[in-house]
Write a protein that binds this DNA or RNA. Sequence first.
DNA 1: TTATCATTCCATCATTTGTTGGAATAAATT
DNA 2: AATTTATTCCAACAAATGATGGAATGATAA
Lengths: 205, 205
Amino acid sequence: MASSLEKAKQNPDSMKAKILTAARKIFGEYGFHGTTTRMIAKAVNIDISTLYYHWGEKGDLYEAVIRDINDGMGQKLIEVEKIIKGRPLAERLEIAIDELAGYLFEHPEISNLTLFRYFTKTRHGSLIDFKVPEFISDIAYSMGLAKDRKNVPADAKMKVLSIMNAIHNFVSGENFFRPMTGLDRESYIKEAKETLKFFNLSAFT
Amino acid sequence: MASSLEKAKQNPDSMKAKILTAARKIFGEYGFHGTTTRMIAKAVNIDISTLYYHWGEKGDLYEAVIRDINDGMGQKLIEVEKIIKGRPLAERLEIAIDELAGYLFEHPEISNLTLFRYFTKTRHGSLIDFKVPEFISDIAYSMGLAKDRKNVPADAKMKVLSIMNAIHNFVSGENFFRPMTGLDRESYIKEAKETLKFFNLSAFT
DNA sequence: TTATCATTCCATCATTTGTTGGAATAAATT
DNA sequence: AATTTATTCCAACAAATGATGGAATGATAA
């Protein structure tokens, strides 16, 4: 059975999908409470009631957005895993950083929303399954930090969290950090990747 | 001339200071838009109008909170600088990580509010001077990554940002990350410090 | 063509939220 | 004691916000 989200993504030109795309962006910029349903409706150029017709409550739309970005990350991680399979660790790290950072710089709402969820309490506790724990364990296993995917030691999880967060930080923080460095966007992305490799390669090789 | 903020901090029992303390905590947990003036008033057990009497608009109170946490960070950085002065780099790093992480784990609102500001757009752009650029440059200089405090290269700034953010992440993300690891608070803090040292010592020594 | 269904908008509500005026009270000053 | 000043709360408001009913419109099926 196709979920409401899957249905929307089948046709990116559908109104439902357009709303979802706008919601991703705006929720990512302003957070849940900082976003109003009217802001999203305006971005799509529709009446607010049309938005409610397609997605129901604000919280439901937000959940759909979270599920959507999780799907994206999950797919990307699988894709990366395929590329790096069998290579030596240093090479794996370099490629993974390039790929993941590249992907997230193209979709900064993913980093924004992920960090939002880490750091913020919501007034009405939406307990969305965030998939992050599984992602983290999978990466730890893939990096050889755990023998068993289901039994990853705490220190390995902490290392992986550190890596992933570092990527998210550079992506989400671009608006704040880039002016500090005086770099243009392209150079900033390049420098971010270099910095990530600087820490990770020396740590793991 | 003592600013409104300084005046409040002179006497921590004053109503003005009590409101500020509660505001720090709640803004830190829920963000600017997620926090209502009524939530803060309730936490202090006062009427909402009393809050307005002391601090004026919500945005003004928020600014005071930001200035307050900046003061705290600034003082702590000076304190740390004194302790590590003259020691070899590896030792400096270890001590700095212990001290800063310890301080921030005691005052998680600082990390929360700092990251909030990095990653979030506010609907009404409050352009508070955030002092972060100076902090970053000072740390880069202190680590020997720049000859000149006023002329820090971009890659050095990126490295320092990476370090600082990594600390903030473990502090702010505790509620999300700790359940993933199964650690108690004390062990989590210890493990966070270890992980930070793992990446930084291997990178810089 | 007619009847059914899906989609969109207009108008409107009920709450929430930021904010203020003014009365009541307490504290300080004369 | 009388008077001013500072502090607190109650009540209320306007604007913003989440949400909905129902009419209009368009598409689809019969």
